[in-house]
Design a protein around this nucleic acid. Structure first.
Lengths: 243, 243
DNA sequence: TTGCTGTTTTGATGTGGATCAATGTTATCC
DNA sequence: GGATAACATTGATCCACATCAAAACAGCAA
């Protein structure tokens, strides 16, 4: 299979066109495939070997648990995302990553990665781009929790997921399959699951989006974008989407 | 001056010992010095040239403005921090960085940086470490805003700043100089300045910390750490601090 | 000394979202 | 067909923090 058509390839393609050699290099990284079932952590505190993964299929989420038992989901991960850069670089891993659905991922060894960095400066740049983009997503998430109310926040997240999934060709024009429960949404949005439910109902009643039976459908995309004050620039993929 | 004693050198030193050659390489990056006054943005939306900086002295903060006029401070930056990685990699800059005090920073050109990456894989790793660490700080911030109450959050931020400043030798054992206003704290913590004031008073009355006249003083460090549920692991600098 | 400007402090009142407690829905398995 | 489990929905009550308003204070310029 052509690597440029994998989710990871599609994503990096938003930053630059991959040469034949780079595609080959990428295939290497992409070889050691692993499967994860719902309920088993992919990355966790105190794990023996520092590993990183490229998510090939399925969704995951990274989260932190507080001593009081509450949890905060840091980010949702979709196919093409690179997981665990931090657990590879840092001496302690302080957050967990668990699959939301069944998931497949390619394990990336630190040695291989640094070899690839050496071989291809352009690939290095692309990885830095991907990392910065993840950071931008995190920032936007922070802004949402800090300064947007529950409705705006929820709308924003749905719009973001739509845009990100679009990049890896996992959407139809105005809907996408979404395996997240209201509990997961709550843990990500800093809301109770109960309140997430109310917010989703309001959005539905306003004729903006519906989220039912694992499917998010946008009824009024413009209205939703206005409500959420959503500007996709931070995802840095507009050039690609316009093509 | 020995680069290893600059804040940036001290910080990277937490990850690895710099060789003589690496120090030289680092000095190169560190040469084009610029000054910034309070009130002029260092990095802003739509700026002509993509630049990055290493903060040499003074404090800064990066923030996002919402259409409603509210702002969310993403992070506070102290000497040794690398600023603007994202504005260098991405096609659009979506957040601003402004100095909190007068500040000096070394401008880093994209070309120089990628050259340095090519020359020194170890430096590349150190930069990735620094980036991951920034991401971890951001995550912790997110967790705080999402799941901690105002008092815990405030305490946590003060403890984090103390630990980070320690790494670049800008603290005394139980206090540090802090140029932040209560408005800035509020914008970072997702609180109103009024509420920040009340929280600071409570912390003072509890005999935990005082923050007055630009000086943060810890009265009961253990108590504060317990209150904030603070675990410095995420800063990945414990090994260094123990030496 | 007198402002002027930015910052801190305190009080009174209002609200978004948490929490508690049920009930409804759907899927799965026997 | 009933039992069980996971998830979604709705109502009632409460509190942490926002918002509004005003005063006290510090630093600085003239």
């Amino acid at each position: 299979m052509n690597v440029t058509q994998t989710p990871f390839g599609l994503k990096l393609g938003a930053f630059m066109n991959l040469t034949v050699e780079e595609s080959a290099e990428l295939s290497q990284l992409h070889s050691r495939r692993k499967k994860f079932a719902h309920g088993t952590d992919m990355i966790y505190q105190g794990q023996p070997k520092q590993a990183a993964y490229v998510l090939a299929s399925g969704w995951a989420c990274s989260y932190r648990l507080l001593s009081g038992g509450e949890r905060q989901i840091i980010s949702f991960n979709i196919p093409g995302d690179f997981l665990g850069m931090r657990s590879m670089m840092a001496h302690n891993t302080d957050h967990n990553i668990e699959p939301v659905t069944r998931a497949e991922a390619s394990e990336v060894l630190a040695a291989d990665l640094s070899q690839t960095f050496k071989n291809s400066p352009r690939f290095t740049a692309a990885m830095l781009w991907a990392i910065s983009r993840d950071e931008a997503i995190l920032m936007e998430h922070l802004v949402g929790i800090g300064r947007r109310d529950a409705k705006e926040r929820t709308a924003h997240l749905l719009l973001e997921l739509h845009a990100r999934l679009k990049l890896v060709k996992m959407t139809s024009s105005s809907s996408f399959a979404c395996p997240l429960t209201q509990y997961l949404l709550g843990d990500a949005l800093g809301l109770s699951a109960v309140h997430v439910n109310r917010v989703l109902r309001e959005l539905r009643e306003d004729g903006l989006v519906t989220f039912q039976h694992g499917e998010v459908e946008f009824q009024d995309l413009k209205g939703l974008i206005a409500l959420a004050d959503f500007d996709s620039d931070y995802l840095d993929q507009n050039g690609v989407l316009l093509n």
